[in-house]
């Protein structure tokens, strides 16, 4: 099994090489297909409006989304998590939008965006190409990057299938509970109890690979093995049940 870190490093190297080559030859890599993106966006349109005169609906309007700090449209009531991630420095660039569309709750755990995600990479690129037309500063999207970017975290089926050792999870969890309360309180520090295990696993890998911004969590997750993450996910999933 190829380790995730190795995979991502390899992907990053490929991406860098690709960008370099693209610039050298002054070829803009193809963005997604905006026309198809408009069709895919129908999945989003019950909650989000975009385009001339778009208003906030269940979700915020998406004009000018590229380059915007997360959770900052006035008059829209965001989840605490989205506001917090914005304060932590989450800016909606291509990479983060792509990760968010792949699995919203993996990037921002308590987001109210109850959408399981666009699992097809091409769909995400197409939607982003569509949304890009409604941003004032399309240069926010580096022309050469999109098709070579890794997704948020590319977890293999093997990693997702690991069944954690609950006893180990309980021991490891003692390191979490210095800050995160076992009763699920979320004042200042987010709750981590009762999550679906896959969301927990994806989120921890996203910290580990430094895709989610937060220095403490990047550090804590950074030294957890796949098995340890699985053990923690198993333990916290049922805590409080």
């Amino acid at each position: 099994m190829m380790r995730i870190a190795t995979y991502l490093k390899a992907a990053a190297v490929i991406a860098a090489a690709f960008v370099h080559q693209a610039h050298a030859e002054e070829i803009a890599a193809p963005l997604g297909d905006a026309a198809n993106g408009e069709k895919v966006f129908r999945k989003c349109a019950s909650c989000h409006a975009v385009g001339s005169g778009a208003k906030n609906k269940v979700g915020p309007q998406l004009n000018g989304i590229f380059g915007r700090t997360a959770g900052t449209i006035e008059d829209f009531r965001y989840s605490d998590g989205l506001v917090r991630e914005g304060k932590n420095g989450l800016v909606w660039d291509y990479e983060h939008l792509d990760a968010y569309l792949d699995n919203p709750k993996a990037l921002v755990s308590d987001t109210r965006m109850n959408f399981r995600g666009l699992k097809e990479e091409q769909d995400r690129h197409d939607v982003l190409a569509y949304l890009r037309q409604f941003s004032d500063s399309p240069l926010d999207i580096p022309e050469a990057q999109p098709t070579a970017l890794p997704k948020e975290v590319e977890l293999s089926a093997e990693v997702l299938a690991i069944v954690g050792d609950p006893a180990y999870g309980e021991y490891l969890s003692s390191e979490c509970s210095t800050c995160h309360q076992r009763n699920g309180s979320d004042q200042g520090i987010p709750s981590i109890t009762g999550w679906p295990t896959e969301d927990f696993v994806v989120a921890m890998h996203a910290y580990k690979e430094k895709i989610r911004p937060h220095p403490v969590m990047q550090m804590m997750a950074g030294r957890l093995s796949d098995e340890e993450i699985a053990a923690l996910a198993a333990y916290f999933a049922v805590l409080g049940d």
């Binding site: 509970s177 800050c179 076992r182 200042g188």
Partner: peptide, 18 residues
């Protein structure tokens, strides 16, 4: 960010004392 960091410390105090 500094405000978030402070709020986090208040959450940590509640967490560690629990």
């Amino acid at each position: 960010l500094r405000k978030t960091t402070y709020e986090e410390s208040v959450g940590w105090y509640a967490g560690i004392t629990a």
